[in-house]
Amino acid sequence: MKTLKELEEIRQRTLDRVNQRKDRTTTRIVVGMATCGIAAGARPVLLAIMEEVEKLGLTDVTVAQTGCIGLCKVEPIVEVFKPGEEKVTYVKMDAEKARRIVREHVKEGKVVEEYTLHVVQGKILNDFKAENE
């Protein structure tokens, strides 16, 4: 069991993070958590993201859940909103891929191209190679 002092510290830290949410200068990571997402394994993805954010000590990042994004067949979906940049949609996520996104995209600013959503000739694909061919 945590002591009151520890709880107070956690509360303060969380408050700081929540307050930052208002000015929208922080990065938002959103995980699709409707029936489709949950069934496809969104929960371990969400928890992996939370863990990695914590581990890397990223304080200007908020992790949130959302409903169905509308592309159930490529769930679990993770969206990354960086201030001043275009939204990046990652598809068919798992815990390991999600950790990589936090490390490479959120922390270092390099989009992990191979996991992003690709539209080729009007069809939604997540096959990075198909687009390059």
């Binding site: 929540v18 969400l46 928890l47 992790v63």
Partner: peptide, 14 residues
């Protein structure tokens, strides 16, 4: 299953 993970993800809604 991992009910604790479900509860933790619930707590993301402050």
């Amino acid at each position: 299953g991992r009910i604790e993970e479900t509860i933790v993800s619930c707590l993301l809604n402050p």
